[in-house]
Design a protein around this nucleic acid. Structure first.
Ligand SMILES: [Mn+2]
Ligand SMILES: [Mn+2]
Ligand SMILES: [Zn+2]
Ligand SMILES: [Zn+2]
Lengths: 166, 166
DNA sequence: ACTCCAGTTGCAAATCTTTGCAACTGGCTG
DNA sequence: CAGCCAGTTGCAAAGATTTGCAACTGGAGT
């Protein structure tokens, strides 16, 4: 506890405690490059402190995400992954639904959105490590020159259930 | 099977079958207003066809989402919810981390993002019923006049684990 | 140093979601 | 209209994530 005063300050400021378990989870995530699953974090934490529980790892991953210290990555068909949010290395991802390619997106590309939300709704959005889906340059669907959004029309009744039941 | 030819066409086009189970799931979601959990969809499907399995409901919800016919809503601390993607009623959501308020966002606010991704990466993003987090107008944090993104600095070692092992 | 208590933890159990697999079936083909 | 087969389904089981709860502890206050 000497360097990383900034992080400690951030955590203290939130009225929370810096337990060895929490420090370990934070440490493991920040010392890995790439995106780790909760289980991978758990395994690495265990090499340092074998009695730590998986639920504690989960709780701390959620906590650190809420603090904005780590970001999530949810890919279709696999468990959630986590990554450090490093100053100067903030980014988002675009995943191709066709080939699985994952692109890194610069935060600047989202600035207009952030501004629009403040302007139109007074909403201060927190854009941290988003995951967007779509098609990469190499996988553009055949006849791709129209609007962009396919529009499902009014599906009235395919099987006839009762209406809304709150 | 007479009206909703558009939906049937869309499904056929994907090389898939319109089974009674699938039609029921689609029907339940499209006949409800608001966001339903998988379990709520399951319950409603069961009133029509009691032997349908929960896993079938899940599989179809995933499938219909991939087809762009339904959208997801993931709120902190509760199970994923689903909603019909209705032509002319497309929208996204902004959720306040402080008070839980949920705002509806117009697709137009995301148009600049969509354009930036095509321009900068050749990526055709599919923006369907996104959920963004942040703070609503009523919950702006006290001293809020700086950049916007809090920036966690380099967390070097809080507990000292080995380096990357990915 | 001693006390105190809100925030945390380990453990067990619950909840939510996905998956393997053999049987089944929609809808195309002839 | 019978046959076929890729796509689906029900069921059982696994996998992923969250939660209840009593014991524990960081760190603020004295
Ligand atoms: Mn990343
Ligand atoms: Mn919605
Ligand atoms: Zn691609
Ligand atoms: Zn609010």
């Amino acid at each position: 506890m000497s360097c990383h005063q900034h992080v400690i300050d951030q955590l203290r400021g939130a009225g929370v405690r810096l337990t060895p378990q929490r420090a370990l989870v934070l440490d493991v995530v920040y010392h890995s490059h790439g995106h780790l699953t909760a289980d991978q974090v758990y395994e690495r934490v265990r090499t340092q402190s074998p009695q730590v529980d998986l639920s504690t790892v989960y709780r701390n991953l959620v906590f650190l995400r809420q603090q904005g210290l780590i970001g999530e990555l949810r890919l279709e068909g696999e468990p959630t992954r986590f990554e450090a949010v490093r100053s100067g290395a903030e980014h988002h991802h675009a995943v191709c639904s066709a080939c699985g390619a994952m692109i890194e997106i610069a935060p600047a590309d989202l600035a207009p959105l952030s501004e629009a939300l403040v302007r139109n709704y007074g909403f201060a959005v927190s854009l941290v490590h988003l995951t967007l889906n779509g098609h990469c340059a190499a996988c553009q669907p055949a006849g791709a020159s129209d609007k962009g959004q396919s529009s499902p029309h009014g599906v009235e009744a395919l099987a006839g259930s009762d209406a809304e039941a709150g």
